[in-house]
Design a protein around this nucleic acid. Sequence first.
RNA 1: GCGCCCGUAGCUCAAUGGAUAGAGCACCGGCCUUCUAAGCCGUAGGUUGCAGGUUCGACCCCUGCCGGGCGCGCCA
Length: 585
Amino acid sequence: MREIVVGLVTQGLERLAGEGLLPGELATAFAQRSADFKVERPREKSHGDFSTNAALVLARMVGMKPRDLAQRLLAAMPGGEDVGVRCEIAGPGFINFHFSEDRLRGLIPEIRQRGADYGRSRVGAGQRVLVEFVSANPTGPMHVGHGRGAVTGDVIARLLDAIGCTVAREYYINDAGAQIDVLGRSVLYRYLECLGRDAVAPEDYYPGEYVIEIARALIERDGEAWLPAAESLRQAVPGELPKPPVGVIDFAIEWVMREIRTDLEAMHIHFDSWFSERTLHAGGGIERALAHLSAHDWLYEGVLEPPKGREVTPEEADGRTHLLFRSTRLGDDSDRPLLKADGTPTYFAADIAYHFDKARRGFTRLVDVWGADHGGYVKRVQAALEAMTGEKDLLDVVLTQMVNLTQGGKQVRMSKRAGTFVTLRDVLDETGSDAVRYWFLMRSSGAGLDFDLDLAKSKSNDNPVFYVQYAHARACSLEVKLKERELPEVAGDLARLTAAEELDLIRLLGMFPEMVEGAALSREPHRVTYYLSDLAAAFHGYYNNYRILDEDPEVRGARMALVRAAGRVIANGLSLLGVTAPVSM
RNA sequence: GCGCCCGUAGCUCAAUGGAUAGAGCACCGGCCUUCUAAGCCGUAGGUUGCAGGUUCGACCCCUGCCGGGCGCGCCA
């Protein structure tokens, strides 16, 4: 629907350009959405279906009063009558567009015809986007926060796909570094314990139950083969802990990744690729990336300035020189070290190499979904990408805030120490994929989220997931009723849809494609849940106040056509979220 | 101390620089013999944390405060 208005305004601009009033490139810029004026949805209903501020923005440039320019533009646009759009000048110089009722009703067959494609577009065509998300460390099971990131990333990918982008989903496995050694030692500790030997907990270890399970599985596979390694670990002096054997580490990582994959599958999330951090270390990727940076003068040896406002321990303040990345040149607060004291790369160095690799794979755009606790890394990774590619804004980072589990209004304590750790698996088992997926998207990703386990399970209209799915089921149930009553199938006369509720419902259906585009471009999946809530409310309101299966076959046919269109849009919206649209409930 | 995010109705949150800032809960008042029932309709509720600035126009952008969260060399 929006395209119709954009077309009208573009033609008007072109004609005014032909008359020499406006620069010719304006119309092109406008049609490509790069102009600083636009077509938008007025908040106020009486202002019509669409509005443009073109005259307001351009008035200064041509030295006219906004309303006078609006008059010229209006006159230059094709007569609205034959396209079913009435235009008028209002307020300080807006041009408002009102769709005729017939034009609105015309959307119903259009939706019917486009079916599952309604809402999809090509505005992102030609873009190749890599969405990296979850990337939970393979050191333990996924918690609910990971789940939120997982759903957010998956739906961003779905949205980008819906606007015509070529999308790939990737999971970055942090299978290198000190944390992995901690995991290996934790397993060996439990391994001794399970074998009934003397066991001493290492000073740093993962306390979760799952580590015991890993140890048991390891015993089942390898018996006592790892006893020497475990013993030497037990006898080691703190501070000089040995590196656990690769065989144990690999076993543990595979075990945890299997769990993670199971959880992801339970949420119907599939990745196109799994990128192992180890391959960067082993394959020389880090050296390549650092050499590339070095060649362009982004690296130097230097002493780090101490962070302000924070005490540095004597150990830290050793005054040694580091290999540093000049991220301050690109807006970061401080230059960043790339090698640890022992000469091995920092996590950041690996991350640089990883993102370098992404850029070299030819993506036109990168999207990362991270937990908000990694917010401090955004600038430096973006700086690194800019330094390596010369391209600014190649990477968008979406940060997801905490999830609070609640039950009966009370917060569910998640504490690894107290053993009341609630995993994503627990929540999935309790409420199911649909509830989890929908719920995680009910707030903007930057806002904290309360997940009410009781409400998410309940079959009541207070449960937003139920409310939306039920709207779809209701639409479908009318189909069944129609057959049960053996009512004749009549196309119906759409002109009989004259009630304000009916026309408003159609208007809402018409906003779906814009909503999808906006959500995709801004990487804001929560817009979909908000939209679906509104749509479901409008549908339920219509259903409650009007008898769809009216006596009059013409009315009945028309209302059923509208109901089918609404059901279709709800289904398409839910599909974007990866949530099922039940036919009955 | 610095950086990022946040501050909007009693609560939880929306609102690509647009016109009179919106939902859902909760509260209050009506209604409920109907295609699916766990309800339906409506009222009220606001100096958008504070103070300036930018402009035709600011919840949105800029500056400075106040308050909360996260992060802040060789953990990932």
